[in-house]
Write a protein that binds this DNA or RNA. Structure first.
Lengths: 135, 135, 135, 135
DNA sequence: GTGGTCTAGACCACG
DNA sequence: GTGGTCTAGACCACC
């Protein structure tokens, strides 16, 4: 797996994991219907507890990014992924707001901020163009 | 004060407070050198714990947005405000990243996301245009 | 067979199967003494494990809905079907209780709840009236 | 508290607990805004693990029946309770269906089944009329 | 083998 | 004091 955790971070491990799985979905590294490692396997790989992995998986199942089956294990949502509905946009605004405010307070311009966001967005959708050895 | 807290929110109260003070600075509602209420006064006004207000003030002092003097009390940074240095941009990227990723995974386009951020940024810098009483 | 399984469901497959066989009996699609497919055949038809079909058959035999003979194979109870005795009503109450409670807590009236149950009951007893080709 | 758990039951403890809390809300024994015991206290009272209590609380928070605060602890949803929307009715039908089917298969009439459900509903909404000493 | 549940004990952030 | 997180180890249902 391509997961990298920072065990020292103040961000909970299960959230780091969930975030990176979503990023994997956004980038296409994880595609619809693709199986994910079992909680035990992934926990062992990452050197963390299986409950922590399970918590991340459950959260993503809850949001509709994953399906969890008895024998089959865990797979990326084979149907349509959750959409950017109003509830999500609301949450997004709430989370973005303090970041925009502090950027403004520190004198960062609209353009600079937007450019930074754009570069992140593109880097996520096309991860091979980042630090890779592509021509 | 213009502070509005949501005691039900999962966002810690001290962070909501700090965020709104920063937003006050970004919008110009709080200007350089302007005195802020004492910890006691503000805590009483908002109906929250002394420690909570103090924690917010200390965090903002730490970042360079406030100065705290024994006698004078608390004032908005009279010199130059903290800048958007590389450390801040690094933190900003780290916080923005999972938001950009989830937006992409949910099929939100670059443009939609940027527009949403832009509207927030402008709303913060010019709060009177939002639900205000301007003509 | 008229069985339809949802392999994504959180309801165990053997239970879905047993439930639908009971529904077949309730609707008359399966009548007393009628032979059912062998464990092997049904498992192949449904694309599921032998053990799973067997578990459903055994459970229904246990409750008295089926008889299982070595040679004859599996048949719907040729004698009298199990009755709604006190043990069943007890189980029924235990299962119905949390559903009634949540309905009440969510503000659903007696009448609404009863009507919903009634419509289900009738739909089960007369499945042709549901999406069928009757005039 | 009025909670009674059956540790031998096949129904998970956290679900029994959640169900009974919902029943408490439906009956009015728990009213809007009322504080609930802390996870530790309730776990000790019931002789179960605090994580089990927490799991029940989290599930009810997720569904909108409870709010969980930092210091205040856990309270019954002070605003409006979740409504019987289409998603709930869908789930209700799915859960009711096998019960209706087995009732029918066992020869229970529409009326008997409805009466049983009605008596449960009323007993939940007015628990004092059940085994109590009221006039 | 898989995930689901429960227990136990620990540390930390919050207020 | 509260809940939030993480770890560890156990048993069970399902397939």
């Amino acid at each position: 797996m391509f997961i990298e955790l920072d065990l020292q971070s103040e961000v909970p491990i299960y959230k780091q994991l969930a975030d990176q799985l979503i990023e994997g979905i956004a980038s296409g590294k994880l595609s619809s219907g693709q199986p994910l490692p079992s909680v035990r396997t992934l926990a062992a790989d990452l050197g963390i507890n299986l409950h922590t992995v399970n918590k991340a998986y459950q959260a993503l199942k809850q949001e509709g990014f994953l399906e969890i089956h008895r024998k089959q294990g865990v797979i990326v949502q084979p149907g349509s992924l959750p959409s950017a509905d109003e509830a999500f946009r609301e949450r997004l605004r709430r989370d973005l707001r303090p970041l925009a405010a502090e950027s403004a307070a520190r004198g960062m311009s609209e353009d600079e901020l937007q450019e930074l966001l754009l570069s992140l967005y593109r880097q996520i959708q096309n991860p091979s163009s980042q630090g890779g050895t592509s021509p």
